[in-house]
Design a protein around this nucleic acid. Structure first.
Lengths: 368, 368
DNA sequence: CTGAAAGCGCTTACAG
DNA sequence: CTGAAAGCGCTTACAG
């Protein structure tokens, strides 16, 4: 190949500044090295305008020689576009959210976006603060699993608020794309499964009814019971957001005079808390008590008996969220989509007929 | 309060640009609104230089009125400091790494740093690519749990590489702070526990011996066996990085003629895989086979029997990593720290004496 | 196809 | 204590 020397190629070291601070090379450095204008360097880098092959070669060579690396901060400032999205979730320690983040990060990366991650710890104030710093960094978009459903009034119209999709919580919120599951259908299916098994006293465990998704899960459950005339036996226990609190609430429910024969945990933490309560009380499981969990996880098939669960379509939720956000990143229309994804009832071994077929309905006629 | 009108306060709307694009307000907008220079706005914002109270008031009022929000992109460019760190982990789906990220994000946020998250999927190539984009965003620091221990030669001296702490893997690497656990001590303690119980055939399950932490865990195990003259019975199975592969490898080991009486899983995935294998084979657990796991997780005390484990000090690892990085962010000295944190042996119910005291040593004299 | 110049929104010498 | 100006490192009209 015919390498030719370019005129007035200055040495790599930047003149002027003392040798003290070693600055990263810039387009300008590349340009002088290659003997072209910095605009030309930018043009070969972005490919936005065609550049004569020979110059292009020289630019590429110069980039390699001086180890140039584009500064996205400058580019973002100029372009008013950071190629960064924010993801804010209540708790990364919850495998449901961890899986969501994992998947979205992967998808975003494929499309050239980096992700700024923040955890809200289920706390509205912390969420607002974390969000604030993400906005200051000019994220192009946001995927948020909000700590509360009722976003502050100011939220949607907040200056600098980028296109946002609400995930898992805040469903149907005007001004946002939202994706969640069909909560009522999920608990209804779960409840029917338990009813078919013969259960009459089924307790539903939710984190907090202040969350719309939990209210919907409670509704699906209540309506299903009501439909078979068991509405009066509905028992919804609000068990909070951490495993220990859940455990305590469930132990209390199980010790009550008319203890349920089945527990339907309506989220991951409740599932774990329920298992702890059942173990702690040394109940005969699943004979004395059935458990239907929520959110499928690796360990659930390692438990004996394997846990029956309502499985949320985590991959689909992540994919839909990213797809919606990416669309909105391209063209920010006014029509917002509200997606409901269906769940799967996975029947394994932790749900079975209560001991004594009509035990709960008519205790005295139950066989041992 | 005595609100007075400032002279030549122009209306909020920026003149010049068409009403089309609604730009976010800038320091300049605040300045004209407050009737001061933009330098003054910057000074009240950063507090770098004192500003007369009256002007300060006017600036604050203007900020509120026009809803100004600082652009960190511009600030970072100017300051050459992004207040952002990168975290790169092999797999966010692994609760060990999820917990680490969760904790570090929290600590970093307290100190005013946002985190750019990337997953490498245990893949060196992907890791390099993701890292590349983080560097382009001029992260101030990096916390990396590398996919491979042997970082590319170019890594440390890579242009634009910020202060970096290596976590979990890559221990002792020159040019980096590193924090990991005392791997050999951890497996040694675990192994001794199993020996004391009477086990003689103990299989150690690692992901891959290409990882130094796994090699160290294998060494601690081998030496402990050797010390009691059982070196020849050491069995290290390399089971890979996903649960299914682990499961298969362990099933094979358990089916071999001289099957172990105890499995020592040397990481989270191996623990899960071992449990699956034990369940799948319907072994009498923990009577026929003991299991000592690694990385304590919520669900492990919900299993029956509760899992005995080597518990990594996740919170301490996260805190140490952040502390080291933050120090280096302030003063980038040449002296790198290499931290080894101790693990905890948590004895629960999944490890117990093999059925028949000398079963493994002398099969024919073992009682049923 | 190429280059000189302006500007993205900040912050920091520098001169009052 | 305050302000006008320069510059961080890019990219994009604009004029050749």
């Amino acid at each position: 190949m015919n390498r030719r020397r370019h005129p007035d190629t200055t040495p790599t070291t930047v003149t002027g500044s003392s040798a003290e601070t070693h600055r990263a090379p810039t387009v300008h450095d590349v340009a002088t090295r290659a003997g072209v204008a910095s605009a030309t360097v930018s043009n070969v880098l972005t490919g936005r305008r065609p550049v004569r092959p020979e110059l292009r070669e020289r630019v590429h060579a110069a980039i390699l020689e001086i180890g140039y690396q584009s500064n996205q901060l400058a580019s973002s400032l100029r372009l008013r576009r950071s190629n960064t999205i924010g993801i804010v979730v209540p708790d990364l320690t919850n495998p449901f959210f961890a899986a969501l983040v994992h998947r979205i990060e992967d998808l975003a990366a494929r499309d050239g976006y980096d992700v700024l991650l923040a955890g809200s710890n289920e706390d509205e104030t912390r969420e607002a603060a974390r969000l604030q710093t993400l906005l200051a960094r000019r994220i192009d978009g946001l995927i948020l699993a909000p700590a509360r459903d009722e976003l502050p009034e100011s939220f949607a119209s907040r200056p600098g608020m980028p296109p946002t999709v609400l995930m898992d919580r805040g469903f149907g919120h005007a001004g946002f794309d939202t994706v969640t599951i069909d909560n009522a259908a999920a608990t209804s299916a779960g409840c029917r499964h338990l009813l078919e098994l013969g259960h009459r006293d089924i307790a539903l465990v939710v984190s907090s009814l202040s969350l719309a998704n939990m209210r919907e899960r409670a509704t699906g459950y209540r309506e299903t019971l009501a439909a078979v005339g068991l509405g009066a036996r509905a028992l919804v226990v609000e068990a909070g957001f951490d495993v220990d609190a859940c455990h305590d609430a469930i132990v209390a429910a199980l010790r009550a005079p008319s203890a349920p024969t089945a527990i339907f945990a309506a989220n991951y933490v409740a599932t774990l808390g329920s298992m702890k309560a059942i173990r702690g009380l040394s109940l005969d499981f699943p004979r004395r008590i059935s458990l239907l969990g929520f959110d499928d996880t690796d360990w659930m098939t390692v438990l004996e008996p394997h846990l029956s669960v309502i499985e949320q379509p985590v991959a689909s939720i992540a994919e839909a969220s990213w797809r919606l956000l990416r669309m909105r990143l391209r063209t920010n229309g006014e029509d917002h989509e509200h997606l409901r994804l269906p769940c799967n009832l996975v029947v394994r071994a932790s749900t079975r007929a209560p001991s004594g077929a009509f035990r709960a309905v008519d205790r005295e006629m139950s066989a041992p």
